[in-house]
């Protein structure tokens, strides 16, 4: 969609890990080994990731300015106007950055987290493999269960009372998605993984003004991935414990060892 060359994809992966996984020592590769795992190491890792990605996209913007492309998201952003004004360089860079980071980390962790939870619930996995028409509903349950984004923050704009708690204008709030998606008042037996759960009114994509821009696309990616994965490797299963990302923002799986019979 963004027209980035395939040779750059590993770099995007690496930089996304640095920015969103900055607190995990595995991604603090620019820090001497003895100093990894600290707050300072996390800040430096995130800053390096930001700076490198912004520099990368500054070059891409230059390329597209010189040679606009058809059906290209970056060209479209460059040519877009809001109230007769073009986007500033800072807005353009931030937009490209957001599309890359938010567009890959979340979906790929829903895929790895989804495969993990399906393998940990063999009866649910068997149900799905027997009837792949349950995949749409299974994806909703995976999104509820995994909640790939742990939290977002909001600032209260006016005094308000919610369930006996008074919030004052200016207060900062954290919304914990794994918690809201296990709300006993909203979900029957919330700690049960059920690929046929109905209703399943989870908020894994948030709600309101900042509802996930890519929710439809993300669900499509999950669907294609699981369709292909289970078609080609129906016996795929865990081969060891997953290694989780150290982060309070992304519910990530860094490494998920699996075993399967290769296609003939």
């Amino acid at each position: 969609m963004m027209g980035l060359e395939q040779k750059d994809w590993p770099l995007m992966f690496e930089l996304t890990n640095k920015v969103l996984g900055s607190g995990d020592p595995e991604y603090q590769t620019d820090i001497p080994e003895a100093e990894r795992g600290t707050g300072a190491a996390a800040r430096l890792t995130a800053m390096t990731g930001f700076a490198t990605m912004f520099a990368y996209f500054r070059e891409r913007l230059e390329e597209r300015r010189a040679n606009p492309r058809e059906n290209d998201l970056i060209t479209l952003l460059l040519e877009s106007e809001i109230d007769g004004e073009k986007l500033s360089e800072g807005d353009l860079l931030a937009f490209c950055f957001l599309l890359i980071v938010a567009g890959n980390e979340t979906t790929r962790n829903a895929i790895s987290g989804g495969l993990q939870v399906l393998c940990e619930h063999p009866e649910e996995k068997a149900k799905l493999l027997k009837d792949m028409s349950l995949l749409d509903s299974a994806i909703e349950e995976i999104l509820r269960w995994v909640s790939p984004v742990h939290h977002m923050a909001r600032t209260v704009t006016a005094d308000v009372e919610i369930r006996g708690k008074t919030l004052k204008a200016g207060d900062r709030l954290i919304m914990w998605y794994p918690s809201v998606n296990r709300d006993e008042e909203m979900f029957v037996d919330p700690y049960r993984f059920d690929i046929t759960r109905t209703p399943n009114d989870h908020l894994a994509f948030g709600i309101g003004e900042h509802f996930c821009l890519g929710s439809g696309f993300a669900k499509k990616e999950l669907k294609v991935m699981f369709q292909e994965l289970f078609r080609r490797f129906p016996d795929i299963d865990l081969a060891g414990p997953p290694e989780r990302l150290r982060s309070n923002f992304i519910n990530g799986v860094k490494h998920l060892p699996v075993k399967f019979t290769p296609e003939r």
């Binding site: 009114d201 994509f205 948030g206 709600i207 309101g208 003004e209 509802f211 996930c212 929710s215």
Partner: peptide
């Protein structure tokens, strides 16, 4: 009421 509650963009 449920539709109102569920609408992602409210």
């Amino acid at each position: 009421n449920r539709a109102i509650r569920l609408c992602p963009r409210q």
